[in-house]
Design a protein around this nucleic acid. Structure first.
Ligand code: ZN
Ligand code: ZN
Ligand code: ZN
Ligand code: ZN
Lengths: 160, 160
DNA sequence: AGGGTGTATGTTATAACATCACAAGGCGGA
DNA sequence: TCCGCCTTGTGATGTTATAACATACACCCT
């Protein structure tokens, strides 16, 4: 039962959540950043199902748990987690998702299934983009790489 | 005076606008799509300065010219232009920008200056992403590639 | 203990972005 | 002529995000 989809496969979810939380705690301690109750809870919520959630979805969960009901509550916690690299923002979906390999420095890339909404995190390393940036003198700081398409499961009998 | 920034350099803007419009017209004719007055005007507006504009900015222009003042007016025209490939949507900015090389099939990539807001279109061809997709069985349909950083002009004395 | 500082939280209001639902007009083909 | 389709117009609403201000609390210094 602790088997949830990650990427497009299954994995031991319980241990995955535990290790992500442990990593976040360790990193915060090292950086002297505070993983407060709200922040920690938001990370847990996002880790629960590895799916991308809108800020207001997260907010609804927080509200139900007594953390507060106003947008800034969710947005601030999410901003913190994104800054620390524990959570990524998916521009295309205006949503947030827990990082699947925190603790490592990485430029994430995402594959988003347009049918089921599943989001898989991959490594980016966009050489073509780096090359274009270098050539034009653009100083690259961050990259957003998001692919849309159909996940393996949705390719059979999917909404075309 | 017909010299505007495109990418991070200058160019002959008048002829660039003219050719983009001609291309749009030809393409629409070929596809039996209608480049109606509103749609054409939106494309012109976006071509005017090669900058990314929000839908409401475009709408304000349309309203001032008597085309209508309600959001759907702008969103519909923009959706059409994006479908036809004459305009690209910049997810990161919730904004739209005229394609700088229409008429060719391409997967655009963008370099966005966080200081001055300038947006340059490049070619994407993200091999790493295609490889990751193939390996995981993801059927890639569309890619969003948007880099943030500093344009050449803003690297000297910029907000760091 | 008292006072200052910084970070985090709580609250109100509003800005900014986007879509739904329905009515009305134009235009080509049956 | 009548129908079907596409396009436009409009009102209402839904969704996402931030500004602005007030409060609480921990921590350090004296
Ligand atoms: Zn990650
Ligand atoms: Zn799927
Ligand atoms: Zn383009
Ligand atoms: Zn710049």
């Amino acid at each position: 039962m602790p088997s949830e989809s990650l990427g497009f496969t299954s994995h031991d979810h319980t241990s995955c959540v535990a290790s992500a939380l442990a990593c976040a705690e360790a990193t915060c301690k090292e950086r002297k950043a505070q993983l407060t109750p709200v922040r920690r809870r938001v990370l847990e919520i996002l880790l629960e199902n590895h799916s991308a959630m809108g800020a207001y979805d997260v907010l609804a969960r927080l509200d139900a748990e007594g953390f507060g009901s106003k947008p800034p509550i969710a947005y601030r916690a999410l901003a913190f987690l994104v800054e620390q690299g524990f959570v990524h923002r998916i521009e295309r979906l205006n949503a947030f998702i827990a990082c699947t390999h925190p603790g490592t420095v990485h430029d994430p890339a995402f594959m988003i299934c347009r049918d089921c909404g599943l989001v898989a995190e991959a490594q980016s390393a966009n050489l073509a983009l780096q090359k274009a940036a270098t050539e034009s003198g653009f100083q690259l700081e961050q990259t957003v790489i998001e692919a849309q398409g159909l996940c393996p499961a949705c390719q059979t009998g999917a909404t075309t």
